[in-house]
């Protein structure tokens, strides 16, 4: 039986217009959802549990009540969910968050594999998987497009490095972050949604983890709306596609971008 953990984050929907108002990030009334990358991580975790026997626990670090991502993971089929939340963890940097998540994984105990999404779509850092692995002292297999459990108890993954794919093997326990190529995330089932709606999700604070608030060194002194894109759109018209194409070609050369 494999003991699998999947780390998921609650983020504003990607369709949200995100703006800074009075120095704070605001996404209006856009819904909060599971980080889209993490749906792939949950899918990978559930696939591994189904194929090789095992249980999946979803783990999220967030503020009080930030359980959207966990509920989605439960609805997809995860067996349990844990929220790590503590007022002393209100603003963390990556390394600090990694130390807290690693402590939670140790607290779950006897974990074989931890799945992560590629990156959080709010902070856009993509650092946590490798950092959690480092704190735990486990191998980090980041950006994996496919995962296979080997007969000797290790795993083989294909890592997408941009220029090509690197096939690597590692012993368990290990941390794996996945890309979209892992396969389409399943839709939550009706039963899953009911189970998620009723679930009492345990909350672990620093006391439960036996941890002191880790040091935070990265700070965000200022948030800004990006400069407005000043464009005057010029519509290119003509009597035939040829004429339009000729005009557009001249315009592009005049812009000196070719």
């Amino acid at each position: 039986m494999l003991k699998i953990v999947v780390c998921v984050k609650q983020v504003p929907d990607t369709a949200a217009q995100v703006v800074v108002e009075n120095g704070q990030v605001s996404w209006g009334d856009a819904p909060l959802v599971i980080n889209p990358w993490d749906e792939f991580a949950v899918e990978a975790a559930l696939q591994m549990a189904q194929e090789h026997g095992g249980t999946v626990t979803a783990l999220s670090l967030g503020k009080e009540g930030e359980t959207e991502a966990l509920k989605h993971a439960l609805a997809m089929g995860c067996k349990e969910a844990v929220l790590v939340s503590d007022p002393a963890l209100a603003s963390l940097d990556n390394v600090a968050a990694a130390r807290v998540l690693a402590a939670a994984i140790q607290n779950i105990g006897d974990v074989d594999v931890v799945f992560f999404g590629r990156q959080a779509v709010d902070s856009d850092t993509g650092m946590l998987p490798a950092q959690v692995a480092r704190v735990l002292g486990w191998p980090a297999l980041t950006q994996s497009a496919s995962v296979t459990v080997l007969d000797d108890g290790g795993v083989q993954v294909e890592r997408d490095l941009g220029e090509g794919r690197q096939q690597v093997t590692a012993p368990l326990p290990a941390v794996i972050s996945v890309t979209k190529d892992i396969g389409e995330p399943r839709y939550p089932s009706f039963m899953g949604i009911r189970k998620a709606a009723r679930a009492q999700i345990p909350v672990w604070g620093l006391a439960e983890l036996g941890l002191e608030a880790p040091a935070v060194v990265v700070s965000w002194p200022e948030l800004m709306n990006p400069p407005k894109r000043e464009v005057t759109t010029e519509m290119i018209e003509g009597d035939s596609p040829q004429e339009i194409a000729e005009k557009l070609a001249d315009k592009l050369l005049a812009e000196k971008v070719l």
């Binding site: 390394v95 850092t125 650092m127 998987p129 950092q131 980090a140």
Partner: peptide, 23 residues
């Protein structure tokens, strides 16, 4: 900022007790 360097900087930050300013 590449897939490799996100990895490398992330791990080095843990070992060196520092932080990464990303991308």
């Amino acid at each position: 900022t590449t897939a490799r360097c996100r990895d490398l900087a992330a791990v080095a930050a843990v070992d060196l007790n520092t932080g990464v300013l990303v991308d």
